[in-house]
Write a protein that binds this DNA or RNA. Sequence first.
DNA 1: GACTTCCTCCGACGCATGTAGTAGGTCTGG
DNA 2: CCAGACCTACTACATGCGTCGGAGGAAGTC
Lengths: 134, 134
Amino acid sequence: MAARQYDMGNAELEVLKTLWDKGPATVRQVLKHLHDGGRHVAYTTAQTLLTRLEQKGFVKSDKSDLAFVYRARLSRDRVTRSRLRTLLTQLYDGAAGPLVLQLIRTEEFTSDEIEELQKMIERLDGQPKRRKSQ
Amino acid sequence: MAARQYDMGNAELEVLKTLWDKGPATVRQVLKHLHDGGRHVAYTTAQTLLTRLEQKGFVKSDKSDLAFVYRARLSRDRVTRSRLRTLLTQLYDGAAGPLVLQLIRTEEFTSDEIEELQKMIERLDGQPKRRKSQ
DNA sequence: GACTTCCTCCGACGCATGTAGTAGGTCTGG
DNA sequence: CCAGACCTACTACATGCGTCGGAGGAAGTC
């Protein structure tokens, strides 16, 4: 049982992603977005998901208008970091190397990203090794 | 509900990882390894996990000796790919760039890995863009 | 003022998963 | 042959999560 920080199910994550993509939204708006994305769930399902996210502190709501408006309290980056860390730990005892190598091998990138990557690698190369706080 | 290929829980994955790390093993050996790693579960728990993994086709067992010996039918790489793909989809609609960039930014690498990375990037840079089969 | 519409609250259900107990078989040392 | 150790099969149970239905309140519409 590792330190499971931002723990949520896939449906919950998808709802959170909606908020990242579209900004603050009501249940109905989130639902609309989910429908547009091909996920056909009931209104109350979206509502439950949002409510659970709020219980976990990942979103917050405020009722200014007729309906509650929900907004993310958790950034996409934080979740990414957390999930990556989990993956790393579960599969490679925390070593990031194999993962990156595989990502680069199997995925594709825009030339901008490649350029960016190159710069980062060069920087890495020059720098002394950091030790992870973990 | 994306094409959830290699679907298993964390405990199951940990058991599978044991098989990757230690090679084919009996329930007792897996259990020992889990205990060594600080996960104190009962014998039957390990057994259940292995059984479920087998039902899903991720490991297979054969009884040559006194006890069943389990071995992975699924490589670490395949699971990695699958999980990464899920992450990518869930967080970035499939774009790999942001993920890699963040990985490189937040994790650390051995000089060998950096070198390897450099080579891969260079190769990427020269090549025409691949289109993902998926 | 009754109808329709939308919203929130609460309860519920089924399946996956983590965890484990128990019954009953087998082997091995005395 | 009997006890202790070890193995497998089966059952069970709590929790998390995805999914919703229904009750009941607020708001605009004739």
